[in-house]
Amino acid sequence: MKKSISFILILMTSLFLAACGNESGGESSDEPLKVYTHNDSEEMDAFVKQIEEGTGVELDVLRLSSGEGWSRMKSEAPNIGADMQIGMLHGFALKADEEGYLDPYKSEEWKDVPDKFKDPEGKWYGTSFWYNMLGINKDIMEDKGLDMPKSWEDLLDPQYKGEIVLPDPGTSGTAFLFTSTILQMFGEEEGWDYLEKLDENVAQYTKSGSAPAQMVAQGEYAIGITWDKAVEDFKDQGYPIEGTLPSEGVGYSLDVAWIFKNTDQPEKAEKVMDYLGSKEFMEKTAEYRSMVTKPDITENEELEKHFIDYDAKWASENRERVMEKWREDFSN
């Protein structure tokens, strides 16, 4: 009888401790940390491997373009189906903050990262930043006798009709960065006029921000509006593609990470966030990005001269209005 009572007490104690563990964030769980990302598969695979080796935390990653990811968050809220976002447009971090999706966490690993690259309350952190770039197929330009474009204005020249490919800003963060850059740089009235004229030369709008670089590299089109690393990767593989920064300047965006408020594994998420701010992870990121936010890893003052004073807050606040007009004018 005493043995039976002891067994029951031990069982009840075990169940109680397990329940407490679940209420405190589920850290006793062997479940992987669920992550959303907009990063390309190749680079994200490398990042995941690095994070898992550096933290011991297993990640379960779902890749969605930035537009798709934001739509998914809105449809799932308040019970978003991930613990973290690793890789997303800065503007969406600001919107996610406004919607109350983010869990603040002050990480000591991020102390030396400049304030402009992180939220003061620790709601989001920027690991790197990237920018728009033109990808040019040198062979096509030569074969067809096309002039090398040097500015955004040059792309309106009729000689490029049917030779330009760019992403759809409804699904691609790269494309929305381009669209909002044009509107900020030229002003809205002149900016929309520019986009309408550019549309006359556009052969195709792609879903992915990297797709134009691939299509230009493989000889389908002469010019792609894309982002820096996509061009550089194909160039490194030996494709006849060159990158050009238009003379008026280019927009750039932080690639940010955050912890979702509804996570049931906060300690694991915080451990990963700490690692994202480490020198070790930033050095790995620098293999895939031109610039990282931690000092003394990637310094390029000459490159930064090409960046416009891009207003991510304006882009965030006006995204829905801008996208509604873009769909009306260009999606039909």
Rank of each mutant, 00 (worst) to 15 (best):
K271L: 14
K74F: 00
D119E: 08
F176L: 11
W314L: 05
G162P: 02
Y288C: 02
W152F: 15
W70A: 11
M282D: 04
F234E: 09
K271R: 13
P246G: 11
G56S: 01
G219I: 05
S331M: 13
G67E: 06
D40G: 15
L254R: 12
A211N: 07
I5C: 01
L195Y: 08
D119T: 06
F47L: 05
G25T: 04
M12N: 03
K34A: 04
F234T: 01
P246T: 07
I140L: 15
E301W: 12
D296Q: 12
M141Q: 11
I259Y: 00
E189G: 05
L15H: 01
L17D: 02
A312N: 04
L11G: 08
P78H: 04
A19V: 13
F92D: 00
E76K: 00
L89W: 10
A46M: 09
E188M: 02
L33T: 10
S208D: 10
E267D: 15
D45E: 12
S210R: 07
G54M: 07
L146F: 12
D199Y: 06
G69L: 14
E188H: 09
N300S: 08
L11H: 01
W326K: 06
D139M: 05
D139W: 10
E190P: 00
D236M: 06
E320V: 04
Q237V: 00
D193K: 15
Y101T: 00
Q265H: 11
V113H: 03
D40L: 11
A257T: 04
N332D: 13
I136W: 07
I297V: 12
F178Q: 04
T181W: 09
D168F: 05
N79G: 04
F307I: 03
S172L: 09
D329V: 12
K197R: 14
K271E: 15
Y239R: 03
E280V: 09
E99I: 01
F281C: 07
Q265C: 02
M44H: 13
G145A: 08
S65Q: 04
Y160A: 11
Y131L: 07
E98H: 01
G21C: 12
T181R: 08
F7E: 12
S128E: 13
E31S: 12
N262D: 11
L134R: 06
V48D: 03
G21I: 07
S180E: 14
T37C: 02
V272N: 06
S210N: 11
